[in-house]
Structure formats: C-alpha cells, structure tokens
Design a protein around this nucleic acid. Structure first.
Length: 920
RNA sequence: GCUCGGGUGGUGGAAUGGUAGACACGAAGGACUUAAAAUCCUUUGGGCAGUAAUGCCUGUGCGGGUUCAAGUCCCGCCCCGAGUACCA
C-alpha cells in the first residue's frame, strides 16, 4: 500500500479523540509542563496557513515533553469577544453570538485536521458567561483594591478607608489620581458621594476623566495599544483625542514591577526591549519655577531629565491642555491663546502626526523666574508638550534639546550654549557629554557629574526633587460597544457600586440593534430593564483584552464555579512554562496579562508573580501573490519572461491554481468568466507567473487554506513543511514550492517499513552504521527541539532517512526509536508505524530514546585542511586534553604520520579545540 | 530621530571563530516505462586550466581592523524589516 495519508490521518485523529489521549491529568506523579498558544480570535475568514505556524511549534514541543515524561497541559480556546463580529452584526442584524459560534466551529474543524494534541476538555471561550463571570469578578476585585507604594502591592480598599478615618490622606503613599488632601475630620464630614469620588482616585479599577483615544467611526474609545499611527488597529479608522470619563485600570502603579521583572523572564531581548520602551522609565527631577502673570504668582512644576541645563533655560512651554494655561494667560493674549487651543483641539491625532515637526505655539504673556539664575523667561504654549507626560510643563533649553531648538528658532528666542566647544548655530547639541560652561557652580564638570550635582543642589534649596517618570499610561477599560463583558457595576444614586458576587455573571442582555442609541449612548442602553434593584447598570462593556488577560489560569481548572482557579490546581500548574504567539501582542496583551497576574498575586489568589516564564514569538507568514500579464485591450496573457515585449497589465491570480509559478491554464479559464476565452503566449509550453510578497489577504488571491494542503499532501506534510520553511521566529512568505520535498521524504520513510501491501520490519540486530545514523539523529533532534530549531531537525530527519534507506534498514531496533523521534513532527504516520510494530497504546506514551554517544565517535585526524608551508588538521578531541597531550597525540597518530611523510615538522601549534597547525 | 533584528547561490535556507552553501526546491542530463506518474542516479555559487581524475583563483551588502584562521568578533558606512515616536 502506498502512503495513504488520508486514511491514516483520519484514523488517528479519531483514535486520539475517542481515547482522550491528550487529556492532562489534574494530579500526577510526573512533573508538570504547561505549553500555551495565544488563543485566536475566531474570524469569519477561517484559518489560513499562517495561523497554525505557532500552533505546530507548540504542539511539537508538547509532544516532545510528553515523551520526556512530563504531565503536559496543552489547551486551546477562543478569544471570542471582539469588534468584527459586532460590525457584522450591525450590518446584518445577525447576533454576534451566532456568527462567533459558527466561526468557532470552523476553526475547530480546521485545527482538528492538523492533528494537534490539545486537551479539548479544557476549552475556554471568553464570551461564555461561565467564563466572563471571572473577568467580572477580577474587575470587582480591582475596584476593591488600591496600590500601596510603601508595601509595593495592592491592598484592600477597606484598609485605606481605615487610614482615612484615622489620619486623612496626607500620610498615604499610593498610586492615585486624587487631587484633594484632607484630614480625618474632614473625611468624616464628607457625604457618601464625596467619599466615593475620593476613593475612586485610589482604586485600581477606577472611573476617571482623561484624554482618551476616541474613534468616531467605531463609536468607542480605544486603549493606546489599539491605536497605531493615529488609526485604529481594527479597521484602520482615524482616532482623535477627547476628554471623557471612562473606566480605567491603574496599570501605571505596576510600571516598576513590570519593568524590573523583565530581567528574570526567558523572553527574547527584542520583546523585552519593546516592553521596556513601552514602559519608558526615565529618571530626572521635578523643579519649581515661579511664574507671574503680572497680577498673581504661581509655582509651576516641570519635569526634566537634564537638570544640569537649568542655566540655559530661555523660555518655558505648557501643553495646550495644561490646567495652568487659563491662569497664566494675560488678558491681552487671551484671544490668541483661545484660538490656538481651539485649532489644536480640532486636529486628530493623525493630523498632528502628519504635520510633523511643524512648529506652532502662542505666548501666554506670563514670565517665569529661573530658580538658579533669577532670569525672567517667557511662558509659551505649544502642542509639542504633552499634557499626559510629566507635569505637562517644561523648561526649554534650546541649546541642548532639538525640539526646544526648533521652537526657539521659529519664535526667535535666545539660545545659550552650556557645553564647551559645542556648535549650536545650526542644530542643538543633545548628547549627554562634554564639559559644562555658562553654568555657575556646574562649570567645568562633565555632564554626567553635573546632572546629579544640579539635582542635589535644587533638592537642598527645596526647589525641586528627584523623580522617576514612566511613559506607561493607565489602560482605558470602557468600550461603547455591545459584544464584550458587561461591567458588574450599577449606579446607586449616582455612586458606582459593584454587584454582589452572588449576582455574577451579569449576562449580556439581548437588544434589538447593535448600534448606539439615538442620543449617542452605548448599545447596552437599548436593553430592556438594564437595572439592578431599580438602579441603572453600567452601559459600556469591557475591551478585548479583558477576557484574554487571565485565560491561562482558567485552563488549569476550567469547570470550577467557585473561583477563577482553585488553590490546588494553581499550586500544581503554577504558571505557563512555554508561551508561543506573535510579537503584535508585545505592548498590549503581554503587558495587561502581566499586570493582571501581578494583581491576582498581590491578592493571594495565585502563587506566581509572572504568568509566562518562556516566550517564543513565531514569525508572520506573509502571502506570496502570483500575477498574470494581460496585453492591454486584449484577452491574451503573456508569460512572465516575455512580458517586457508587450504593453501589459499585471493581474493578481489565485495562487491555488498556480503550481511552482506555473499557471494551470484550464483552471484559470474556469476561474472567472472573463478568462474563459483567454489566449496565452507561452514560454517553453508553459505559462510562468510573476510573484510578489504581500500580506495574506483575500483581495490579493494569495490566501492558502490549510485544508487544501491537508487534502493534497496530508497534515504530517503540512506540519513538517511549515517547520522546514525557515527559523520559527522569522517572518517569511508562504510558498508551496518545496512542499513536494517534504512529502517525498514522508513517502520514503513510509517505504522503509512498507513494501506494496506488506509490512516489512525485521527483528534482526541493527548494524553499527544504522545505529550511528540513528544516534546522530537522536542527538540532533533533541538539541534542536530544545532550541526551537525545528527547521534543522526536519533536515536531520531527511538526512537520516536517506541514509537508512540506502542501508536498506528495516529493523525494529532502529524503526522503533525513529517512530518516537518523528512523532512530534508527523504524529499520524508515527502512530501508524507504532501500531504496525505491535504496540497497543498511543506513541504519546512512549519515552524519548536515549542518545548513546559511542555510536557517533569520529575518526580523528582524517583529512588535511590545507598545506601551505603550514599543514592544518581538523581533529575531534576531548576538551579535557591539554595542548601538550594534543601535540603528542597528533604526532603519534598513524593517519597523521601518513600525511606528514617526508615533511620536516618544525612546530605544532595547537589552537583552541579542533584545529592544529603543523609548521613544516 | 531613537531601539532592536537582518543582508549568504536561481529560490527557501545550513554553518559552538575552524573544509561556506548542509537539507530542500527549481533547473539540466540520464536510468526504468509503449507513455505518463512514481522511483532512482549524476551535475548544479562564479571563473580559469585539463581528455580526465583533478587542480587553481574568487566568493557571505560595502570599506577597514583583530586572528594562524572571520559569514561569524571589533570600528565606520549602505540597504531592508520590526517596534516606537514631539516622553522633556
């Protein structure tokens, strides 16, 4: 029988499902290992060949770990809340739950065909009330906690209330957004509403007014990571800044912990770097400048990382949104300032960006006093200062900051150089190096000493203090949308109040339409009787990242209705040992999950502080589009190599009717009615298509569906080919060219133990040559899997099978370990061989074969590398040998003497490990 | 601008500082076959010499350097990709 992958794959997929082969044991003597994929959003388009790349890698690793004797948890689920299903619902009236359900079914079907070893009994869906109950629960917990900067952890809000009752808020060191200070007596006198407002400024999940990213087209606000280049990541619609009251998560409280713990994680440096940049820690100082508007004096605090440059301050700048603007604008400038602010408000984020570096600004009319020189400097307003970072006000040092420099040039403000020898006639000198001048007591110091010296000085004078700033902002947590988790919050006389836990989950209500109401309220406002005990419920819903932030805990204990995860299950599974997914989540999901995890850790619900110990980012699989070239105004198509001889139009052609860049002409004619009568100018009897690497998308006709590959080549070929394509972490275009090689390899492997209809394995002893090939492979595969170098291990299989086939190796002693070795990559064919070898249990319960080094020892000194006065030999010697011993061994070696015949050896130079030079 | 990756045949890609191009695709030639498919064998970075076995030169984006030895390490450029962006 030929290698009939269709039958084999169907058989084993059914076997695994029937026997629950991959169900993870909740209790086990074995050590645990948790391998997780980033769960997908089930889109309407189904999976394309890019999606399974990471899943295949994680599956190989999971199967490998099982063979190594681990109790492996390898689950899968769906990130099922999201915008596309809702947009579709708005257009069609179809309930998002229905479309989502349909898409999930299709995803599942497609994944099953690839032969993944998921434990489907633990599947989770974020849109399932039994699941989002725990998302809502976590939100209430965050609502009921505040972040104590003294103990560096989240603590119950009751403890904070107790402090307020005893001593007000002056002694509290919290991450907060409360602007009021009060005594115990004052606290006692506040009414309920006032107390609620104050506490809101301390809660980890809080409601607050800030500038948010508002996307008018989607009718909702978005978090920072959901906006790229001023456009929404979903849909690509313009986003503008708007002040709104929204639910937020105090992620910023965890900035330092999120940053410092990165060092301990086994993630790639580039990913850690992305998170570091996103968190954006900068050390500097806050400094107080006295500002006068002519009639009144104010203390305005600024933030700077260059305290050493105070002597070069020639003006000050406020953000247009700064609260100081109103106070510091003098009557004569009022009209101009108002006009400027109006203009900047009108601009969307995108417009601000496209008008790059266009310098704009307006003078307030006020003057600030330089705290060190006493000089009076003007206070301006400009968009280049951001309200949300630092204090929203800066001291401008045009000589040493390029933005201040541009501003100074545009408005003709003075520029004072502070570093010896720097030239600021054309540009600022931003580097933190050189000797200070024009700087009073700092003169002569190096910049690196001057910065701390300047801060020490202002601290001692009480006009400033050291300060660390983070770029990381709190996460906006409200969405004005339907298809998300409802907030478990109702408004009791206007006071936001969490539902009792017994009321969870708060189910998403049915509504007639999925759009906002006429008055612009979120869709949930359409729900009938959206109240609790007569009080109105919150109408916004949670964002996409809410459900995906702690899903990995749920897999540990998916059916628990007492808690997110039981203590027992959490103590056993702890955290994710290996997480595989795309880099696109670096600044979103992976920050939120770490934050969420740390919060639950602080509260004592989970035992590990970090969720993902090791993280691998699989590269993206891009599309590879094919083109045909139509001669203008005809229906004649010319092959790629001849296209320059004609005036042609390039047309995308469906890659599924092109093989190795050769067009299937009949299929092309049938593809679209227009082409039925097409004529062709061929090269050597074939039509060669052009190609380009583009994003994989329907409109480019370059989407390759894994189902097609499974139909034509089988899942084992698909799995091995995706790995063979190149390094896992690298992005690469999908190119079916080359898949034949992998398929050929599997057929060859099949023929090792099948001849016609006969199973031909013998029970004889293996020869040394066979064992050598086997053990080289064992060693290679083991190290490659551990290094996630799956492409080279596929090559190693090809080499080994070629060699063993040449040796006519069909003995059990080799084929048994070979089946185990290949089973993570091509599990179906491996199971088939395993069964034919007489095993009753799945190959997943076998043990990874042991590598025996003695089968691979090479003969030493077997060839000369070069001869050129010097003779060089590559040798393999134990590392423990010292140079003298090596020299003696070399000269004594028989082979070596053969090469040295007649040569007059003057010197033997032993260079590290492998090579020796012999000077003759 | 800043940060991090990366540049190797016709193609995808291999190479703990140690024979560059493993493995695979494609291509060319051949065997088997009435034919096709399948399978197998040979050649395949470029150049030169030779009937040949073979030998020599050259070659990993560019220019320098360290080293007995550099695709790999160092310095300076060029190009491509990703992230981020008035973050003071």
């Amino acid at each position: 029988m030929e290698y009939n992958f269709k039958e084999i794959e169907k058989k084993w997929q059914a076997y695994w499902a029937d026997n629950k082969t991959f169900e993870a044991k909740s209790k086990s003597e074995k050590p645990k290992y948790y391998v997780l994929d980033m769960f997908p959003y089930p889109s309407g388009a189904g999976l394309h060949v890019g999606h399974p790349l990471g899943y295949i890698a994680s599956d190989i690793y999971s199967r490998f770990k099982r063979l190594q004797g681990f109790n492996v948890l390898h689950p899968m689920g769906y990130d099922a809340f999201g915008l596309p299903a809702e947009q579709y619902a708005i257009q069609t009236g179809q309930h998002p739950a229905v479309t989502t359900e349909k898409n999930i079914a299709r995803y599942r079907q497609q994944m099953d065909r690839i032969g993944f070893s998921y434990d489907w009994s633990r599947e989770v869906r974020t849109c399932d009330p039994d699941y989002y109950k725990w998302t809502q629960w976590a939100f209430i917990e965050m609502f009921n906690h505040w972040y104590n900067n003294d103990t560096l952890k989240a603590e119950p809000i009751e403890a904070l209330i107790a402090i307020f009752e005893k001593s007000g808020n002056s002694s509290v060191n919290a991450s907060h957004s409360c602007e009021e200070s009060f005594t115990a007596a004052q606290w006692a006198s506040f009414d309920e509403k006032h107390k609620s407002d104050i506490l809101m400024g301390y809660r980890i999940a809080y409601q607050g007014e800030t500038a948010v990213n508002w996307c008018p087209k989607l009718g909702t606000v978005l978090a920072n990571d959901e906006v790229k280049e001023g456009l929404s990541v979903r849909g690509g619609f313009p986003v503008e800044q708007k002040k709104m009251k929204q639910w937020q998560l105090r992620v910023s409280a965890y900035a330092e912990r999120l940053l410092s713990k990165l060092d301990e994680l086994d993630w790639t440096d580039s990913l850690k770097d992305m998170q570091r940049n996103w968190i954006g820690k900068s050390q500097g100082a806050e400094m107080i400048f006295k500002v006068s508007n002519g009639s009144q004096d104010y203390d305005v605090t600024i933030f700077t990382t260059r305290a050493d440059t105070v002597f070069g301050v020639t003006f000050m700048v406020l953000a247009p949104e700064s609260e100081w603007v109103e106070k510091l604008t003098v009557p004569t400038q009022k009209a101009a300032v108002e006009e400027y602010i109006l203009q900047s408000k009108k601009k969307t984020e995108r417009e601000r960006m496209t008008e790059t570096r266009k310098v704009t600004g307006v003078f307030t009319g006020s003057y600030a006093t330089n705290p060190l020189t006493g000089d009076k400097v003007p206070v301006w307003i400009s968009e280049y200062v951001l309200a949300g970072y630092g204090t929203g006000a800066i001291m401008a040092v045009p000589a040493h900051d390029s933005r201040d420099y541009a501003f100074a040039k545009a408005f003709n403000l003075p520029i004072i150089p502070l570093i010896e020898g720097c030239d600021v006639s054309n540009e600022s000198f931003d580097a933190k190096e050189g000797k200070m001048m024009n700087s009073g007591f700092l003169n002569g110091m190096d910049v690196k000493e001057a910065i701390p010296a300047a801060i020490d000085y202002v601290e001692s004078k009480g006009i400033g203090k050291r300060k660390v700033n983070y770029r990381l902002r709190d996460a906006i947590f409200s969405r004005q949308r339907y298809w998300g988790e409802p907030f478990p919050i109702y408004y009791k006389d206007g006071i936001p109040t969490p539902l009792p836990l017994s009321e969870l989950p708060l189910n998403l209500p049915e509504i007639d339409q999925y759009k906002p109401t006429e008055s612009g309220e979120p869709p949930l406002a359409r729900a009938k009787d959206w109240t609790y005990n007569g009080y109105p419920l919150e109408t916004s819903t949670m964002p996409g990242f809410a459900g995906s932030s702690a899903y990995y805990f749920r897999y540990m204990d998916p059916h628990n209705d007492e808690g997110l995860v039981s203590k027992e299950s959490n103590d056993y599974w702890r955290s994710v040992d290996l997480y595989i997914g795309g880099t696109e989540h670096a600044t979103g999901h992976l920050i939120y999950s770490r934050f969420w995890n740390k919060f639950l850790f602080d509260c004592g619900y989970v035992c590990e502080d970090e969720p993902f110990k090791k993280l691998i980012n699989q590269g993206m699989i891009q599309g590879r589009s094919n083109f045909v070239y139509r001669i203008k105004n005809t229906n004649t198509f010319v092959s790629c190599g001849l296209k320059d001889k004609y005036d042609t139009t390039e047309i995308h052609v469906d890659v599924n009717i092109v093989h190795n860049d050769r067009l299937d002409i009949e299929a092309f004619k049938a593809w679209m009615p227009d082409f039925a009568t097409a004529e062709f100018v061929l090269e050597d009897g074939e039509y060669i298509c052009g190609y380009a690497v583009e994003k994989m998308s329907k409109s480019m006709f370059n989407v390759v569906n894994p189902d097609n590959i499974c139909d034509n080549y089988g899942a084992d070929t698909l799995r091995m080919y995706e790995m063979f394509l190149g390094p896992l972490e690298q992005s690469k275009p999908w190119d079916t060219k080359g898949i034949d090689g992998v398929n050929r390899f599997l057929r060859k492997f099949w023929r090792m133990f099948n001849d016609g209809d006969k199973f031909i394995v013998e029970d004889r002893k293996a020869t040394p040559a066979e064992l050598k090939a086997l053990h080289i492979l064992i060693n290679k595969v083991q190290t490659d899997i551990q290094n996630f170098s799956f492409n080279t291990s596929v090559s190693a299989f090809m080499i080994a099978v070629n060699e063993l086939a040449d040796l006519k190796c069909n003995c059990r002693e080799v084929l048994e370990p070979l089946a185990i070795l290949i089973s993570p990559f091509a599990p179906h064919i491996a199971e088939e061989l395993w069964q034919q070898l007489g095993h009753k249990e799945s190959i997943s319960f076998a043990s990874f074969p042991e590598y025996k080094a003695e089968y691979t020892v090479e003969n030493s000194f077997d060839y000369p590398v070069s001869f050129n006065g010097k003779m060089r030999f590559k040798i393999t010697l134990p590392k423990s040998m010292n140079p003298k011993e090596v020299e003696a061994a070399v000269l004594a070696d028989e082979n070596m003497q053969k090469y040295l015949q007649g040569a007059n050896v003057k010197k033997v130079i032993v260079v590290p490990s492998k090579i020796i030079n012999i000077v003759c």
